[in-house]
Design a protein around this nucleic acid. Sequence first.
DNA 1: AATATATTTAACCGACTGGTACATTTGGCT
DNA 2: AGCCAAATGTACCAGTCGGTTAAATATATT
Lengths: 206, 206
Amino acid sequence: MRTWKQDPEAVRADILNAATAEFAQNGLDGARVQDIADRIQTSKRMIFYYFGDKDGLYRAVLEQAYRSVRQREAELDLKGLSPVDALRRLVEFTFDHHRDHADFIRLVMIENIHDARHMRKIESLSGTSNAAIDQLREICEAGKAAGLFRDDISPLALHWQISALSFFNVANRSTFSMNFGDGLFSEQAQAELREQVVKSILAIVM
Amino acid sequence: MRTWKQDPEAVRADILNAATAEFAQNGLDGARVQDIADRIQTSKRMIFYYFGDKDGLYRAVLEQAYRSVRQREAELDLKGLSPVDALRRLVEFTFDHHRDHADFIRLVMIENIHDARHMRKIESLSGTSNAAIDQLREICEAGKAAGLFRDDISPLALHWQISALSFFNVANRSTFSMNFGDGLFSEQAQAELREQVVKSILAIVM
DNA sequence: AATATATTTAACCGACTGGTACATTTGGCT
DNA sequence: AGCCAAATGTACCAGTCGGTTAAATATATT
């Protein structure tokens, strides 16, 4: 009664969150299991108890991170907007969302260093269904139907470009700043870049 | 005099090249000094003899990689081209160059994971002079002077976008393919993406 | 040739790290 | 209460890895 109450779910969730921070900060090889345990009040033992090994924990982190992101993407409501407005909104959302979730970006960077070999083992991520691309496809079809968009645009290629610009903005900030100064990362400049991205995407479809 | 059984410079160069491959493949923490030695015919001891410690070697790798890239960038000859043609050529060159030097891209990804903290210690990289941005600036000025380009374009923001698209294409190939298939990475699709990037950049300046 | 210096080899080490063995406690159930 | 399985604490281990010690060999210098 006086000692700790057992709450397995909370412990598991705590570990997962601590591990997310640790992996995002230090990478898979740089992360230390002991440091993850130290971030919360638990022991290394518990981590192996719940997740098997370091790789299993990393995979759980990756899975949760992707699930969270996809869920937030699915929550984006574009109903009632014209194709152009919907596309603009989607781009702005993606740009902002990447900026707001740097940990996720870092996990993806790390996974790319590993050629996505851990992701490949997560069955829940192999489903090709993806809200972001579905929404984009709908926008494109509506745009084409309304005669507003070109006929030869590819939703996938469009998504590629939106992702590239939003991702790079967060992922490569450190080296870009080292090479060219951090002028582009002031709030003012970021707002301008965001608008540049929107216009650039709109220019592709129209 | 005739037979140089010892060849320190060659050993040093070999180590540097082997280390470049090892670090690019496995990251800073994932790389193994022993594995670098095994890649060539030398011993671990030599690596520490020439580069001090693992971090020193990594810094040497990074420095050489950046120097090579900057040199190749400087070799791009845009003289005699109109602003539009020069810009198109620069974008195509950057897109291709990134694709052709995946190891460099990976080193930059790795350095970004580490918040560019190793790059920061390399004095030869702190010089802000950069051929790529200089050429772009010239193109922009010529374009504005000729009344072909808008007046409010920023060479830096333009470079940011060219880099973002070229970089992402290589850096995020693994996870992008996992999520959306590898259709965009066929030769045919890559050629189309390349053209999309060119048009998108041109749309920004005009 | 003799000496000094640069380069290379081989064996070794201490710290760290992922993972485990085993004992102990907690809480649900009868 | 008494039992059992889930959950947790403690101590520990075996392999790995960056880095070193010390000695040998090659080259340059005089």
